[in-house]
């Protein structure tokens, strides 16, 4: 094989030989009509159905159940459904579920920062709420601006 960078072999400069990297569902196959391929498409459509059902449940919740159920319960349900939905998207659509274990950890572990993030911001909001209650004229700032 020639090592000159002509039109035909310049591609390896952009990306290496991917066939050595992937395995499982992300491996390179040849027959789009194989049973394996059809099973994967069926799985994608199944997840689509789940996402659609969850969205419909959320909309029903937002339209009707909101008036009957306590706010805390319905909001917790919304947040759980949101996380479930995003987990489906990340695991199946973004193929994170098909990556090797160490790479999954690499992506998921930094998300633990959100725990601190949310606590810190809500604490901040609580402090502001306290200030607002003690000082109702704070709005003057907006008025004079």
């Amino acid at each position: 094989m020639s090592h000159s960078h002509d039109e035909n072999n310049i591609q390896h400069l952009y990306e290496g030989d991917q066939s050595k990297l992937y395995s499982g569902v992300m491996n390179h196959h040849s027959d789009i009509n194989s049973t394996e391929s059809k099973a994967q498409v069926a799985n994608i459509l199944k997840i689509t159905l789940y996402l659609a059902i969850i969205t419909i449940v959320e909309v029903i919740g937002g339209l009707y159940l909101y008036h009957y159920l306590p706010k805390g319960i319905i909001n917790t349900a919304f947040l759980i459904l949101t996380v479930v939905k995003s987990a489906f998207i990340v695991k199946v659509f973004m193929h994170l579920g098909d990556e090797v274990k160490w790479f999954r950890f690499c992506v998921l572990i930094p998300l633990a920062l959100f725990i601190w993030f949310i606590i810190a911001f809500m604490y901040d909001g609580g402090a502001w709420l306290k200030i607002n209650r003690g000082n109702p004229t704070r709005i003057d700032y907006i008025k004079t601006k």
Binding site: E15, S23, G24, G97, F103
Partner: peptide
């Protein structure tokens, strides 16, 4: 997921060298 278990069985430890423990390209 069932496909996940089909990933290459490591012959050495993940961080034992000789191969990427993450099994993805740099760009991805």
């Amino acid at each position: 997921m069932s496909q996940a278990t089909a990933t290459t069985a490591p012959t050495t430890k993940a961080f034992g060298g000789g191969r990427s423990p993450f099994n993805v390209s740099y760009g991805k």
